[in-house]
Design a protein around this nucleic acid. Structure first.
Length: 104
DNA sequence: GCTCTGACGATTT
DNA sequence: GAAATCGCCAGAG
């Protein structure tokens, strides 16, 4: 079972809600948690990556439009996103603005 | 209880 | 426009 903290569990719970073909940013994620300043903490939680398959952590990208990082490598992350219909411009930069998922 | 690290963000140079 | 620096929060040692 998850030996994670409440904060991490909250992050994974939100990330797991991201539908296929959509992506979100670490900022929106932290904001959804009620702590827009805890961007690093949210990213740190995903960094644990306890359920890489169950949690679509690859759908979480940076606010800059870059894919950010991934436990399996940023290359794999972009690959998965492209497979879901995400338009990757270049250098791992994508048009997440058109497929942005807003937590609600 | 203090310090370092980290899948980040925004600002400044 | 790109690179570097500072600032932020939470977890682990």
């Amino acid at each position: 079972m998850a030996v994670l903290t409440d904060f991490e569990a909250s992050v994974f719970k939100l990330v797991a809600k991201i539908p296929q073909g959509k992506v979100t940013t670490y900022q929106a994620l932290a904001c959804a948690l009620g702590k827009p300043r805890a961007i690093r903490a949210a990213g740190n939680a995903l960094g644990k990556n306890p359920n890489l398959i169950k949690v679509p952590c690859h759908r979480v990208v940076r606010s800059d439009g870059k894919v950010g990082g991934y436990a399996g490598g940023a290359i794999t992350k972009v690959k998965l996103l492209k497979a879901e219909g995400v338009q990757v411009v270049r250098n791992g930069i994508m048009n997440f603005e058109k497929i942005f998922y807003n937590f609600k």
